Amino acid sequence: MHPNPAQRFTAELLPRIIERLHRLSHGTLHGEVLPPEIPNEPGRLRVWAPARANAGRFAYPLDITLSWDSWEVDRLFATGGETRFAEYLDALAGKLDAWQEPRQFDINTRTQADPTVLIGGLDFEHLMR
């Protein structure tokens, strides 16, 4: 159906990442697939949520864009890719937690220091357990 790995990633795997984020956040985080900036590149993921009323750690409501390295996306469709992706999904909570301080956003209050945050060039490595 989607011979291009970037198109397959956008159509098949980004929705699974959104589903996991939604589940991890008990429905407070929203995800939106953004089209690739360049043809034949993987789509991006916008993660957003309204800030909690009167509880913001930072000035802006959560609005993060995630983008993945196209070479890493290609590897997901090679041998072992499904296992690698499943492990990535399992590690996503830890990754989100680790990104908060350096990127200055707070999942709990759903706020961030800058109007938008880009976390780009991502891979699918998972944290050690």
Rank of each mutant, 00 (worst) to 15 (best):
M1K: 07
N4W: 15
N4L: 15
A6R: 04
Q7M: 13
R8N: 14
R8P: 11
F9Q: 14
A11C: 12
E12Y: 09
L13A: 07
L13Y: 11
L13C: 14
P15R: 05
R16T: 06
R16I: 05
I17F: 07
I17D: 01
I17Y: 08
I17S: 04
L21S: 00
S25G: 02
H26D: 09
H26R: 08
L29N: 00
H30V: 00
L34P: 00
P35T: 08
E37D: 11
I38E: 13
I38L: 12
G43A: 11
R46L: 02
R46H: 03
A49K: 00
A49Q: 00
P50I: 01
A51C: 08
R57D: 04
F58G: 04
P61Q: 04
P61M: 04
P61L: 05
L66S: 01
S67Y: 08
S70D: 14
E72F: 12
V73D: 11
D74E: 15
G80S: 10
G81W: 12
T83V: 08
E87K: 14
L89A: 06
D90H: 06
A91S: 09
L96Y: 02
L96D: 01
A98N: 02
Q100W: 04
E101F: 04
Q104K: 06
Q104N: 04
D106G: 08
T109N: 07
R110E: 03
A113S: 06
D114F: 15
D114K: 08
T116I: 15
T116F: 13
I119N: 02
G120R: 13
G120K: 12
L122M: 15
D123I: 09
E125F: 06
H126F: 10
M128R: 03
M128D: 12
M128I: 04
